[in-house]
Nucleic acid binder design. Structure first.
Lengths: 95, 95
DNA sequence: GACTAATTTGCGCAAATACGCAAATATCGG
DNA sequence: CCGATATTTGCGTATTTGCGCAAATTAGTC
C-alpha cells in the first residue's frame, strides 16, 4: 500500500471519526430511501450549514452519494463500498 | 447504540484517521513481535516525542497495548479487538 | 418576475491538533 | 554514582476544524 492509498484511507476514517458525521451516517443507515439534508438535520443538533458541510466531507470520501431532486438534494449511504473498505482494513489488521 | 458508544466509536476512528498514526498501525501490523517506540519512529518521519504522543492516543483507544521492558516500552497491536470493532461498524453500515 | 424553501458559501471565532525542540524522567551498564 | 539510551512532558506555534450567523445561490410555485 503506497502513501496515497494510506492517506485516502486515513481521510475516510477521519471523515467517519467525528461524532456528528458518524451520527449522520447512522441516520442514513436506518433509512431505506435517500434523505434530504433538512431531514438529516434532526439527528444532530447543529445548524443546517454545518450539516451541509459534514455531508460534503462524507461525499468527498465516498461515504454518501448526493442526487439533486428539485430544490433539495437527497443523500444515500454507499453501504457496500464503505463496508468493504472497513473490512479490508480489519482484514489487514487481523493479519 | 447510545451517544457514549457512538462517541467511543468516533474516537477510535479518529485515532486511526491520521496519517502518521495509521502508519504506526500498519508498521505494527507487519511485526509479529512487539516493537519499541524507537523502532516505530522509522516508519513515520516525525520526532520521537510525536510518536510517543501518537502511541498514547492509540493506546487510549485500545488500538495498541504497551508493556514496559527495561528502559524501553514495547507496543503490540490489539489485532482481533480492532478488527472486530471495524467489522461491527461495517456490518451496521451494510445493514 | 416576486416569493418561498432548501442548500451552500463567506466570515469570524474558539477549541483542538500535530509538530519540533528542549528539559525532565526512567532505566540500564559500568 | 555517572553516562548513555529510551521515552515522556512542557511549551510555543502554525494549522486545522467545528460551529453559528448572515448573505448568496438554486429551484420550485404563484
Amino acid at each position: 500500500m503506497d502513501d496515497d492509498q494510506r492517506q485516502e484511507l486515513a481521510d475516510l476514517l477521519k471523515a467517519l471519526g467525528e461524532f456528528n458525521r458518524l451520527s449522520l451516517v447512522y441516520e442514513l443507515c436506518q433509512c431505506n430511501a435517500p434523505q434530504n439534508a433538512m431531514c438529516l438535520c434532526d439527528c444532530c443538533s447543529v445548524d443546517s450549514s454545518v450539516v451541509s458541510r459534514h455531508l460534503k466531507v462524507l461525499a468527498q470520501q465516498g461515504v454518501v452519494q448526493m442526487e439533486k431532486k428539485g430544490r433539495e438534494r437527497v443523500y444515500s449511504l454507499n453501504r457496500s463500498d464503505v463496508a468493504h473498505r472497513l473490512r479490508a482494513l480489519a482484514d489487514q489488521i487481523e493479519g
